[in-house]
Amino acid sequence: MAEKGVNVDTVARQLALERSRLNTFIAGTAIPNENTSKRLAKYFGEDPQEWIDNVDKRDDGKVTISSLPTDFIKVAKTSEIAEEDMKIVFHDLVVIANAEGNFYAFGNVCPHAAGPIGEGFLEGCIVECPWHAGRWDVRTGKALTLLATADIPMFDLRIVGDDIEIKVSEAALKQGVVSAAGPDPA
């Protein structure tokens, strides 16, 4: 992008991509789907097929989790998460929210388009995905809007002194699978 003299905001506006999604592609923490790859290639005047071939071969650098911890694990300190704030933990799969004086642990991956829920907005006990405004209740994981296509997983949480500990289930690894046949989330 620097070679072309453009910034993230300019490209995001031109492609109607949300800034947070484009940043995850550039940082290598998310892989754009085929339609988004084609749109990005066309924007930069490059061959879309080369972009798609590159995406298919790319290693996204995420940590592979071969097994889950069987007990509670420390993921944060209560003092690190202010009231009405959130923190993404456990390999970017879980979010800890401090909502209305209580802490909650839930899945970070939006069931609609695999967006990072923890980068969204927390208002009271409602979290909103930054990509398409799906909303969930952080106390129960229940979907509250049509764009929240499924409930999000909840995880057991306990406070030990100032430490926040969670017990992660298999649901952490199963979240965010978006159908390739589904609509382009961009």
Rank of each mutant, 00 (worst) to 15 (best):
F90N: 04
L147Y: 12
S179V: 02
N102R: 13
P185W: 05
R19V: 14
N54Q: 07
T140A: 02
K62T: 12
N35F: 11
G45E: 07
K74Y: 05
A113G: 03
D92L: 09
S67C: 02
A114I: 00
E119V: 04
V95R: 03
F103N: 00
A99E: 04
S79H: 03
D85C: 05
G141F: 09
I65W: 03
A186D: 05
I96V: 10
C125A: 09
I81M: 02
A148Q: 00
S179N: 15
A41T: 11
D184C: 14
T24Q: 12
P111D: 01
A186G: 12
G161E: 09
L93S: 03
E80H: 12
R135W: 03
W136P: 08
F44A: 08
G5P: 07
A12S: 14
E100C: 01
A99N: 03
H132I: 01
T70P: 01
T140F: 01
H91L: 02
V95K: 04
D151V: 12
L173D: 12
D9P: 08
G176L: 00
E84F: 00
A105Y: 12
V8A: 15
P69N: 07
I96M: 01
A12D: 06
G124M: 01
D85F: 03
K62D: 07
P69L: 11
T24F: 04
Q14W: 06
E165D: 07
S37G: 15
N23C: 11
K42Q: 14
E18C: 04
E18S: 12
D163P: 02
F90Q: 06
N108W: 09
L144M: 13
F121C: 06
I164P: 04
A82R: 05
A16V: 10
L40W: 05
G124D: 04
F44Y: 08
W51K: 01
W136V: 00
G5E: 05
D9E: 15
T145Y: 07
G176N: 12
N23L: 15
P111N: 01
I164F: 06
G45N: 11
S67D: 09
K77L: 14
T70M: 11
A150E: 15
K74G: 01
G61S: 06
E123V: 14
G124E: 13
C125S: 10
E100H: 04
A97M: 02
V160C: 11
E46Q: 13
F155A: 00
V109R: 14
Q49N: 10
N23S: 13
K74Q: 15
V8Q: 14
G115Y: 10
T145I: 07
L22M: 09
T149P: 11
A99Q: 12
I81P: 08
F121N: 11
C125D: 13
D151G: 07
F121L: 15
R21G: 00
P111I: 00
L93T: 04
V138K: 07
P130K: 07
F25N: 01
